[in-house]
Design a protein around this nucleic acid. Structure first.
Lengths: 105, 105
DNA sequence: AGCGATGGTAAGTGGCAACTTACGGTAAGT
DNA sequence: ACTTACCGTAAGTTGCCACTTACCATCGCT
């Protein structure tokens, strides 16, 4: 499974993506996050686990709390995937446009 | 629902993403696609519908066949989302790094 | 008109994933 | 040591979604 694939599956869920964006904007603990979303604390924990497995999130222990923060690696992987995809796809897209252009002068 | 949100949900499914990538690389009909994936033709049709609703795919009638091709709009939306996200997140990420740096000279 | 090919959609099913509650385990404060 | 707070995980439930089969409409060809 490629690096971006797991990340895309993870970001496919709206709740999980919202949590990810929230964590990216400000590193936070689990209870802090659970307080801001309409889901239970274990649900947040499970989402964070998926995000972590996808390389999108890191966590560091800070006393009894675990602070989750952005992991640039996963985000970079997804970004690069779309960036590359955009370039190559747009190229072939232009090829098709040019081809149909040449066929009817 | 933002433009990129629907697209990300659509690309969350691996099969659907594979179909999308295949369509992007070469415009094709439904049966053609169904022949290349281990799912039935209606399944492909349904995936294409989701991709179309997400603005990721276009379709044009060509005789009795419908040729599906990439819709740059949806792809651009996702790309821009990650591009922007990458910039802002990386900025705040650097802020945190700098902050913790300043706190322990 | 009749036929074969294409494909959208309805209906139904199975499996999975997102969620809950319950429990246990660790860290800090008193 | 006891309590309180934080959190991961196990167990169970539910709803959704990806998939199938079946049916019907449309298009092109003879």
């Amino acid at each position: 499974m490629a690096d971006h694939s797991r990340a895309l599956v993870a970001l496919g869920d709206p709740t999980r993506r919202a949590i990810f964006e929230r964590v990216a904007s400000r590193p936070s603990s689990v209870v802090e996050l659970a307080h801001e979303f309409p889901v239970s604390r274990p649900a947040v924990s499970q989402h964070l686990r998926v995000l972590k497995d996808a390389g999108l999130v890191r966590d560091r222990a800070e006393g009894a709390r675990r602070i989750y923060s952005l992991d640039p690696a996963g985000l970079a992987a997804v970004r690069d995937y779309f960036e590359q995809f955009w370039r190559t796809s747009l190229a072939s897209f232009r090829d098709v446009a040019n081809r149909s252009h040449e066929e009817e002068p």
